[in-house]
Amino acid sequence: MKPTRIVIIAKAPIPGFVKTRLIPALGPDRAAGLARRMCEHAVHVAVDADIGVVELCVSPTPSDPAWHQLALPDRLIWSDQGGGDLGARMARAAERTIRGGESVLLIGTDCPALSATHLREAAHALHEHDTALAPTADGGYALLGLRHFHPLLFDNMPWSTETVAFETLCRLGRLGWTVKNLRRMHDIDEPADLKWLPQGWRSEADPFVPG
């Protein structure tokens, strides 16, 4: 049975570079602050899941000073996303991991609802299914688990639209791969999504919620 690696696709919390769709509500600095908190949360959840190697696949490169401000555990493998659109960057990470003999759980940092339990459930699902998918309410997905690689799942995908999860499922069907659908979650991309932040993040004193 192949081991499973969690690969977190992450952007550095640089104002104006990350969470740009939240800037109208939060401003660039507070949007970046929220991105930092979500990135730290995602990494700690992945480590707590304790299912295998946790890799932080980042943009800009791991040597960028912006990464030094995050409170992250030492138990991490770092990698550079490289160029191309989101699909190209995810495909590169997935193919490298699978060719190395591991299954992969691809996640981002935008879904605080994604827990260690969900990650363990997805990893377990890959013992019996080719893929695992955790859809999000906006039509995307928070997690894609794969035992095999195929570029069809990443090439010319309409990223950041409401059809990503549906299109991914259609392509999985074309490949004839089995899929375990996990429960739908909410990610944090638009100002209207801020209400889905964890309760402890939404207190009146929290600097991320607009007044």
Rank of each mutant, 00 (worst) to 15 (best):
K2I: 12
K2R: 15
K2V: 11
T4F: 07
T4R: 03
V7Y: 08
A10L: 01
K11P: 12
A12Q: 08
A12G: 00
P13D: 06
P13V: 09
F17P: 09
F17R: 10
F17W: 11
F17M: 14
I23K: 05
I23H: 06
P24M: 05
L26N: 02
G27M: 05
G27C: 03
P28N: 07
R30C: 13
A32C: 05
A35K: 14
R36L: 13
R37V: 10
E40Y: 07
H41Q: 15
A46R: 03
V47P: 04
V47T: 02
D48V: 15
A49E: 03
D50E: 13
D50F: 10
C57Y: 15
V58C: 11
T61V: 15
T61I: 15
S63K: 15
D64M: 06
P65D: 06
A66Q: 01
W67T: 05
Q69G: 12
L76R: 08
S79W: 04
D80E: 11
Q81D: 03
Q81E: 03
Q81F: 00
G82D: 11
G84F: 11
G84T: 12
D85R: 09
G87S: 04
A88Y: 04
R89M: 08
R92V: 08
R92L: 02
R92N: 04
A93M: 06
A94D: 03
A94P: 04
G101C: 10
G101D: 13
S103M: 00
V104L: 05
L106N: 05
I107C: 07
G108V: 03
G108A: 00
T109L: 03
D110R: 00
D110W: 04
D110I: 01
D110H: 04
P112W: 04
A113M: 01
A116W: 08
T117W: 11
T117L: 14
L119K: 02
R120P: 09
H124E: 15
A125T: 01
A125Q: 06
H127R: 07
H129W: 14
T131S: 01
A132H: 01
A132D: 01
A134E: 02
P135I: 07
T136M: 12
A137M: 11
D138H: 07
G139E: 00
L146G: 10
L146I: 12
R147E: 11
H148A: 15
H150S: 08
F154N: 10
M157C: 07
M157I: 03
M157D: 05
P158F: 07
W159R: 11
T168H: 07
R174E: 13
L175P: 03
W177G: 02
W177L: 00
T178Y: 09
T178I: 13
V179C: 12
V179G: 11
L182C: 11
R183E: 12
M185L: 13
M185W: 02
E190S: 03
P191G: 06
A192T: 12
A192N: 14
D193M: 02
L194V: 07
L194F: 01
K195D: 05
W201T: 01
W201I: 00
W201C: 02
R202V: 08
P207T: 10
V209S: 00
